[in-house]
Every structure is written in C-alpha cells, then in structure tokens.
Design a protein around this nucleic acid. Sequence first.
DNA 1: CGTTCCCTTGAAATATTTCAATTATAGTGG
DNA 2: CCACTATAATTGAAATATTTCAAGGGAACG
Lengths: 274, 274
Amino acid sequence: MLTVPATTMNQTLFNLPFSTETPEEAHAVRQSTTSYAELLSLLQFHATPSTRVEPIRFQHLRLRRGQRAYRIGHQLESLFVVRFGSLKVISRDDAGEEKVQAFAMKGDLLGADGIHQQAHVSEAVALSDCDLVVVPFRRFRELSRSSPELELAMYGFLSREICRERKISGMLSRLGAEARVARFLAQVAVRHAALGFSEKSFELRMTRQEIGSYLGTTLETVSRALTGLDRIGLIRVDNRNIIILDLPALAKLRRIPPSKCPLPPTAGQNDAAR
Amino acid sequence: MLTVPATTMNQTLFNLPFSTETPEEAHAVRQSTTSYAELLSLLQFHATPSTRVEPIRFQHLRLRRGQRAYRIGHQLESLFVVRFGSLKVISRDDAGEEKVQAFAMKGDLLGADGIHQQAHVSEAVALSDCDLVVVPFRRFRELSRSSPELELAMYGFLSREICRERKISGMLSRLGAEARVARFLAQVAVRHAALGFSEKSFELRMTRQEIGSYLGTTLETVSRALTGLDRIGLIRVDNRNIIILDLPALAKLRRIPPSKCPLPPTAGQNDAAR
DNA sequence: CGTTCCCTTGAAATATTTCAATTATAGTGG
DNA sequence: CCACTATAATTGAAATATTTCAAGGGAACG
C-alpha cells in the first residue's frame, strides 16, 4: 500500500547532454537559460504593466544529489532561485557539525543570508537533483533599480524570510518535539499545495536526522513522533512517504495524548497494549 | 483581567504636537527630529562621497516603559530606528500568549518583519523610556532609489537579521538551557561593547520571564542558570545587574559541570559541598 | 507601608536524549 | 539479478534535562 507517486516529477526537465562532473564537487552548468519574465513568475512576482520587459536571460545551475550550490566562505556572486528539486541549507558549528537551517524547494531564493557579509554564510546542498536559476547579485541590483516593484519584492522576500525564521524559533521554543514534527509536516503539506502538488501525500526528501537537526531534536525522537502521529491517526507513515489525514489537527497539535488514554472524541476502541 | 485595548491604535503617528495619551497606550511624539546624516550614522552606515546629502529630517517617537511603537495588524507605515532605550519585540501565539522574538537597542531597525505583509506582524514594547526615529517606509524607498548604497545597506540589514534569527534558532536547537543563557549574556555584552558601553558590567532591562520566553525556557530555569553561572565563576549576578567575569568561556560554554563531579583535567579537589 | 510583581529555590513529575540492538532500504559490483 | 555493504529507520530502557508546582523572600511603586 501507500503508493505515493508524489513528486516523482521528474527527472530531467529537458534532456541534457550530460556534463563532466567530479563527484560531490563540481557543478554542472547547463546551457539552458531562463528569461526575466520566467524568473519573476518563479518568484511569484506578478509583473505589473509598468514593468519593462528585460531581454536578459539567466543561466541555470544543475546539481546532482549531494552537490552544493555554494559553500560557506565563498564570495557572494549570485543568488539562486530554485526551479526544480529540493535542497537543505546548512551551517556548521564550531565543531564542524552541520545544522540544517532550512529546506528549500521550487520558488525559494537561496543565498540572501550572505548579502551583509558579501560572502556565503551557509551551504546549499541538493537533496535530489536540482535545477537552479543563477541570479548575479550585481545584475539583480541593476534590475531592481529600474523596477521599484522588483525592489519592493526583494524587501518582501527578505522580510518574509525573517518571519519564517521567527516562526521556527517560536516552534523550537514553545513546542514539544512531537508538536514540532507535526507542524513541520503541516508546513511541508501547505508548501506542496501552494506549488500545485498534492498536500495529502508526498515523499520527504530528507533523512530523520536532517529533520531532527532542523527541528532541534534527535533522529530517534523524530522517528517516535512520526510513529505517534500515525498511531493517533493524523498521518500515515511509510518510511519517507507521508500521507496527511488531518491537516488542521496536525497544524494545531500541542501534545500527543498518552497512548493508554481514551481518545477524546468517540473513544476509539483501543490501540491496545503498550 | 486581560484588558486588551487591542487595536485602539492610534491615531496618527505624525505630527501631533502632543497627543492625548492614555497611559499604556498612546504615543508621545516629540518635536525633535533627526537629520538624514544622523540617521545613517545611527544605522552604522557610513556615507560615501557619492551619497548626496538630503535635507530631510525625521521625526522622533518617544515611548515610556510599557508603551508600544506599533502593534500586530497595524498597517505598516513606518520603520523605526532605536536612538535610545531598549525594547522587546513580541509576537502572540494562538492563545494570545506573548513570545519574545528579539530585544532591541540603539541602532536597531524595527518593523522590517512586516514589510511583506504591509502590516506589522509583531509588537515593539518599550522596556525603558525610549526614543525612536520614525522612518516612513515610502520615504525610505524614495531615498534608497536615489542612493544605491542605501539600498544595499537595507538589503544588508535584512540579511543580517536573517542571520541573527538563524543563530538564535541554532542556540535553541543545539544547546541546553544553561548554555543558552550563557550565550545570551555573551551576546548582550558584545552588543554593549559595540555601542561603547561597558561589556563587563551592565543591567538587564528585561525580566527572567522575558529572557526565558526569548530563549525558549522557563523563568525558573533562567534563574537557576544564572545562579549556576555565578557559582562556577563566569559571571556575578545581583538581580538584574550582571558582571561578566569570563566572556570567552561564556560564549563557548556547552554545559555547566555537575557540582559534585571532579573536574575533568587534573581533578580539582573540590568545589566543595553542593 | 502595603500591594504587586519579580526572583530564588526545592522536590516531584515529564520530556527528551543517549545508548544499544534490530530491521529496512538503497546503492554497488559480481 | 542477487548478494553485500553502508546508510537509514525503528524501538526499548536507562540516564538526564527541563518543566511544573509550591513556597518564601525582595525590590519597586504608589
């Protein structure tokens, strides 16, 4: 059971010749490009009449799983907009241990956290094959100067990112581990829906460990929380395949009721022992 | 009781010589103003020769302890730059409970989190008497259009805020409560130093509860952590007065060694009882 | 000088991490 | 296509960390 076709979407969007890649490291830059208009729509920025159409085209960056769009310390030349695939954004603590700061998918802007240092302060690692639009920051600034709307959109983007981070901080500080996992799933579902994918059923692209790192808990706790959410009937879990059964409840959950406790409404018979 | 006057807000922000103030609610707008150059220096933005000097002046907003610069849901008209005093930035969860998202002091920009919604998503509450520079967002955009440096500075500001939030998320997720408190104090010390105040000795303006809310723990735990840090000699605590004895150690601390346990290297005889 | 809010401290109740063992799953090369 | 190895996921039980509940002492404000 549980065939989750999910975002199997796929492989090559266009067929590429295939590039010489050193495993793990080099970037495969393809020749395909994206127009300014396409870029704006990817960013959910809907051009107004006043916006002049620029003839510019932007190059793409193709990544295979495990490859990075940029690394900590690299000079910030470009920002990246996800066109396809999903990534994790990580930082490293003093001991070099990685900490997941965000998961990115279609439409997300990557690299903005490095603007104030003019260098990247995080790494964007592909969790699946990815296709990114490369936006040279200089070019971006030129464009925003000629288009106040774009400039405002950029402020909006950064502002939104601040809010997202605060929301996460809020989750981390107020909520127990199970509730954090529940809300994480709810968020993923909502984002999927916003992109036109199924909000009921999807495949997580990251490991339990990465989820734990993102949510400030351990992989074991994430695993237990998923099991618990399945047990109380809010989701169905099969490895990385998730089916959402009750999104509103997931998004509101504060704690999973202890297992031997009769379920609040129309007490389900029993989950039996343990 | 919960008297939430709610969106009683407020009349106009601008130009009233003196507003009718209901205690706790209204804003005292003073007549003093700040020049563009002063504003830039407050923001740590050092003008380059190319920056044209604008004759514009910005009004101030005076707050007494407990008053707010803006409230959740209010339309975003202006951003605020702290000139004097300290504030807490809070949000509210579904139950209306407040959660401290940030503490602000001189030079900090307030309100940017509301840009993407064009409405405030947080409240800025004065922890002491405060003096803020009011920067109408429209005006700000006009200025940034005529000064690419200012535009870049704004991106930098927002970018820096994203990094700060991520750093906090990192603290919340990886560190135990004592370590969070330790790093919080280290941060405060560093920011004080950057503003020219003493980094060794300062007075916290917020309650234990507010610190706890910010750090994702309870007031009791904050209190115990402070006591613990005092006991191991990293700080001296007397109510809200803090003296920093070992800043580098504070900033690195991961856990407070259990009191009865012999210290790892060259087993120190004893910290004695308890 | 009383009232209110704030801080500290202890002990019991909970939540989470850690350690450890087992079972899946995916990728690789015969 | 299968076996093989490495990585990922689940689960239990003990060790820890944190919250909660409760009570008492201080400081601040009118």
